[in-house]
Design a protein around this nucleic acid. Structure first.
Lengths: 211, 211
DNA sequence: TAGATTGTTAATCGATTAACAATC
DNA sequence: TAGATTGTTAATCGATTAACAATC
């Protein structure tokens, strides 16, 4: 009986990790697991594991533990619904290309529908089975296909310019590789940032400043 | 007078964002900024901005505010040192390829020295000016060049197998794109994770479960 | 001097961890 | 029944925000 009043972001961010470890256990044929075993494997505490699962009503059995396949299913259901999220890619440069093949081959729960760019020389060429369209087609495309998610693999400025249109056209979530901070101007939007530059900088800070 | 006793991870993770906004301001010719202006731009609070800067001794002037170029420099110095971090790439698939060109063209503070793979057909071919080497050369290479950072663009299992070697060979920091959780087995190591799969899953959770 | 804004201490808030009663 | 382990409440910890004294 899932009772998710409002699940906090730290909990949500841990769900994929639980899911990965559970997939692994399931594959290995492990059938049950306790919160403390799971915690040890994942480098966290049993308390946190139980607290996390209880955000969704609790999936275990007192005295027994958790059934791996049940738990795996429950979290899978939380993460993915029956129908995958229809998705568009904006920007087909090096990163956009790598990401599109990642989405097509290694990701679940997403359906990549179309790719857009501005560079005349790539328009009409093929990418992961799609024909790259000009960004001027975006509005029309969204009106007919109402995609859920936009993947932004474009420069900061382009992202800033495009954001209001995408929001207006009903995009619900952004997978944002650009350096534009969508959340500042659109605090309500669902944004998952992958800021490679920021990631590198904090890594470099830590390596440079280790005692 | 930087007095960084031990700076917390949340603070470190915000430094790149400060740096980005300050670069932008500097470029626009803005010379001074107050904590509250900076906060408004970045979507945080003035209090947090001042607290953050004071982890490093404080860069401002009471009654006046912060000098943009000074602040930009100070944070730049924290993030990057004179000599860039020598870096090796493990795994030259689609993602590895995209990442190597990102490191070479769009990143500061890193020097990509070598790329390794196991696939015979790519060994000896060229990537971003480097000749892809067989992973068997890794040990020898590290002994002569003692790289600081390893970028992992390989599958989970390979990462798990390779990790002890890399740690033993003196790698200080990992930019980890693999799904192997290094931090579980090496809690002391500096690891910056970019888990694209996890990122997609938490995005999908949020889009699927918005009220 | 008065106004502004920092540096810094104190209060609040939220997330993690510990404890324990419920129950298989 | 006794042992184990969850679900859940309470305590702790850390990070964020507010307040204010210092000072330009």
């Amino acid at each position: 009986m899932p009772s998710q009043g409002k699940v906090s972001l730290p909990v949500i961010k841990r769900l994929p990790k639980y899911y990965r470890y559970l997939s692994e256990m399931k594959q290995k044929g492990v059938t049950k697991v306790s919160s403390s075993e799971l915690a040890r494997m994942m480098g966290t505490t049993a308390s946190q594991v139980r607290q996390d699962f209880n955000c969704f009503g609790g999936f275990g059995q007192q005295g027994i533990g958790y059934e791996v396949s049940r738990l795996h299913n429950e979290i899978g259901t939380l993460l993915f619904k029956e129908n995958s999220l229809s998705t568009i890619l904006i920007g087909t440069g090096r990163l956009g290309t790598a990401i599109s093949s990642y989405l097509n081959n290694d990701a679940r729960g997403y359906r990549l529908l179309a790719a857009f760019d501005v560079k005349e020389e790539v328009i009409g060429t093929e990418l992961c089975g799609m024909t790259i369209q000009h960004i001027d087609n975006l509005r029309e495309f969204c009106k007919s296909n109402s995609p859920d998610v936009a993947v932004l693999c474009i420069p900061k400025l382009s992202a800033k310019q495009l954001a209001p249109t995408l929001v207006e056209l009903g995009i619900k979530g952004f997978w944002n590789f650009s350096h534009y901070d969508l959340t500042v101007e659109y605090p309500g939007m669902i944004v998952e940032n992958v800021h490679l530059g920021d990631s590198l900088m904090s890594l470099s800070y830590r390596v440079n400043n280790l005692e």
